[in-house]
Each structure stands twice: as C-alpha cells, then as structure tokens.
Design a protein around this nucleic acid. Structure first.
Length: 454
DNA sequence: TCATATT
C-alpha cells in the first residue's frame, strides 16, 4: 500500500536522494481556493511538500496566486509541464501560470560570488582552492580590459552542500597567496538583486545625491524573513547613519582625569600644530627632500627615520623647534599608527568632512606609513593605500608574449579623522607637499552618504 | 582621482 495521506515526505532536508526542494510561483489561482484544495489538485501531477497562498498584507485575503514547494527539481518540472498554460481552474480567467519563483533558478545553480581575489590570480589557483570542497561545474574570473582580474569571480558547484562547505570554510578566513585580506565568499546575486544593484548604482552616480535613506527602500526589508540576520555582510558595511566606531575608546579616555598627564603635550596639540606656519612645507629645513632619501634606500617608516622630511613626521625630531618631543614619543606614535588598522581589515569612516582622499602617494607607503604621516593633524581612524586601477600596470612587448608588469605604481589612499578640523589641517599642510618625486594631492574625500533627510 | 568587485 502506498502512502495515502502523508503529504510531508520530508526527505529534502535529510539529504536522502540528494533532492533539493524547489519553489514554484503559481498564478491564476481562484481566490476562494484553500491551500488544502490546491495541494490536492497539484498532487495529481507531482509530489508536493507545501502550498502557500499569497495573501494581501492587510486584508489577509488571497491575491490569486500561491507558492508551490516541490521536493525536487524533477517534481517541480512535472508540475510546470502539466499545468503551466495547460489548465484553467474554475473561476479563473486564464490558464494556470506555473514557473520557478524569483531567484529559484539561480539558487539551484549553487552559484557563489568570490571577492578579494588578487589582481593576478589564475583560474588554476582559484580552482585548486575551491576544488577542496566539491566539484566545480563552472568558474569565471571577472577580468578587465587587460588580463588583470577585477578581484572577483563566480563559481558553480554541483551540489548545495559543496557550496555551503566552501562558503563556510573560506569566507573571511582564507587568504590567497600574496594577499593580505581574506577572500569573501557569498551567494551570487539573483537576477532581481542584480537589477536592484544596477539601478542603485546608476542613481548614485547620476545625481551625486545618493539616496541612503533606508525608509525609502522598504522592499528590501520586507523581503527578509522576520528576525533574519544576514550571516555575513561581505562588504563590512555599516548601517548608514552609524558613523565612527567603538573600536577606539581613546578619545573618551583622554578626557578623563589622570590620563591627560600621560600624553605628551605635543601629541595632544598635534592638530593645531599642524596648522602652525613653522611646519609648513615651504618652511621646512632645506637640503633635505623626500626624493633624496628615497633614492638612497627605502626606509619603511620615513616619518621616524627622516623626521624632518615631511610635516607628518616633524614632531619626532627633538632638535630644532620642539625640545619636549622625545624619542619615546616617536615610539608611541608608531605604536598608535599600527593600531589604526583593525585586524579585521574593516575600514572606518569618519564624520562628514573628516575623510581625505590622497593622490600621488609614494610606492614605499603602506597603510601604517600613511597613517603615521597624517597623524600629526588629529586622530586617525583609518588609513588605506590602494593602487590606482588605471595606471597600475603597463603592457610591454616581449618576443612572443605580452608581458604585464608594474612600471609606476601610482597610488592613492584614504585617511579618516574623527573631526573635520583635523582633516582641514592636514589639507592645509600636506596638499602639494612634495613626497617621493610627486606632489601629494590631499583633498576631502567625496562623500556619497552626505545628504540625508531628517 | 574616491576603498569591497557582481556574470
């Protein structure tokens, strides 16, 4: 005797048979029909796990459509083939519409997005890594005009389990060779999400007055199950409006009695000192330029080894204009600057007007050096150097092959302060300052989150 | 010339 009244053969979760439940959208459903009636009807054509009538939010009445959950793709296809445009239910004006629900096809592809790939990564490297978790059906590294990767890829696995295990094992944990940041692994966007992303991008680029008001995008929230918290926010975004971080408790501590005396005065007044004329680039000691020392070896922390060479490092010199600045101070500064970048790699943004965009940063500068160079003017929340996409590589002709090699690493970066005053001080002193053969351009970072209605 | 990219 076969199953007669069992409608919950729930083997999809247990992994028996490898079936994966599939959600279908059904249109042209008479509003008076119940879920039980619909289940009964569809069971003539396929196995059915569940039917959910889609109801009006307020009136709770049927909207004339439903979701139909089938235990496998095969069963779902049976329902589609038997019903779509083939049968008209009593009271309906047109035949049933039965199709895969939005995002369902993509979901069934077990497709992952991989971010934070090195620019020069090869298919073989990515393939080797991800093959540890299952059979790769498809791999596509996104590449730009040259061979260089755009830092991300798409990847399909044979089964959901394989994709999940890769996601959990690699996301945020695995660093590729030569990369300092871990890979990001997420489920690829569905078609709808792609469109939403495109629209949002177009809007923010067109107007320059981006809409970051969450209240104006209610659909995204309505789509999330109640209580759902995304497992991983791949981009580390903060909710708009939550400026700053709690990771730097120092400002509060500095205001407490007893702490002030522990901080050398030169340090605490640094933002103001940065504005003082005697530190201005044009008035710095002659006969010593950053370009000079760069030719004769590459100091990792120029601000410390060549204290007179640029304004950011000037507080470290004990000689000519600040007798109370001592070398322990310099060490403190170094320690502070290396703490600026969090271990998670998350970049922190300061309040509006407190973030700088800096161009023509010397090659020798990494994040810590950049932070060090700019900390004289205020509390640096974050400093980030990156290579300019357009000019980071040049192509050369070889006898047989194209050779892509870096020739002049044009670098830019961001520095975020906790106050606009500090940022302005840094601009006043550092903009146009010659460092490493090029003049720094220091300006306020474009701020796309600026305008926000109340 | 504006960071973490989306087929």
């Amino acid at each position: 005797m076969a199953e007669s009244t069992t409608n919950n053969n729930n083997d999809s979760g247990g992994g028996g048979g490898g079936g994966e439940s599939v959600k279908l959208f059904v249109g042209q459903v008479p509003k008076h029909m119940t879920e039980v009636e619909l289940i009964t009807m569809f069971k003539e054509f396929s196995l059915v796990d569940e039917v959910n009538i889609i109801k009006d939010k307020t009136t709770r009445t049927s909207r004339g459509c439903c979701f139909l959950i089938c235990p496998s793709r095969e069963e779902a296809d049976k329902a589609v083939n038997a019903c779509h445009n083939k049968r008209t239910l009593p009271g309906a004006s047109s035949p049933l519409q039965v199709k895969y629900a939005d995002g369902e096809l993509e979901r069934l592809e077990h497709k992952l997005f991989v971010g934070m790939l090195p620019k020069n990564v090869s298919d073989a490297e990515v393939s080797a890594l991800f093959s540890n978790y299952g059979k790769i059906k498809d791999l596509q590294i996104l590449r730009g005009s040259q061979q260089t990767s755009k830092g991300c890829a798409f990847l399909k696995y044979e089964t959901k389990e394989q994709a999940v295990s890769a996601l959990e094992a690699i996301n945020g944990k695995h660093k590729m060779e030569g990369s300092s940041v871990p890979l990001v692994v997420k489920w690829a966007d569905t078609e709808k999400e792609r469109q939403a992303r495109r629209a949002q991008k177009a809007q923010s680029q067109a107007s320059g007055v981006p809409n970051t008001d969450l209240a104006q995008q209610p659909s995204l929230f309505g789509a999330l199950p109640m209580g759902h918290i995304p497992l991983y926010n791949g981009y580390g975004y903060q909710a708009p409006g939550t400026y700053g971080l709690m990771q730097y408790p120092l400002p509060q501590m500095q205001n407490q009695p007893g702490f002030q005396n522990m901080v050398p005065p030169v340090n605490r007044g640094s933002a103001i000192r940065g504005l003082s004329p005697d530190l201005a680039p044009g008035l710095r000691p002659r006969g010593f330029s950053p370009a000079n020392y760069m030719r004769s070896g590459y100091p990792s922390i120029p601000g410390l080894q060549y204290p007179m060479s640029y304004p950011g490092g000037v507080i470290n010199q004990g000689s000519h204009n600040s007798s109370h600045a001592t070398s322990p101070t310099a060490n403190n500064n170094l320690a502070a600057s290396s703490n600026i970048i969090t271990s998670s790699g998350a970049q922190t943004e300061g309040p509006p007007g407190a973030n700088l965009f800096i161009y023509h940063i010397p090659q020798e500068f990494g994040d810590p050096e950049l932070a060090n160079a700019f900390q004289t003017f205020g509390r640096v929340l974050s400093a980030k150097v990156f290579v300019d996409k357009a000019t980071g590589v040049s192509k050369c002709f070889g006898k047989k092959n194209w050779i892509y090699q870096p020739y002049y690493l044009l670098r830019a970066g961001f520095v975020s302060y906790d106050s606009p005053v500090a940022a302005q001080s840094a601009i006043n002193v550092m903009n146009g300052y010659q460092l490493g053969g090029k003049k720094l351009k220091v300006q306020l970072k474009r701020d796309n989150k600026q305008s926000k209605p109340y």
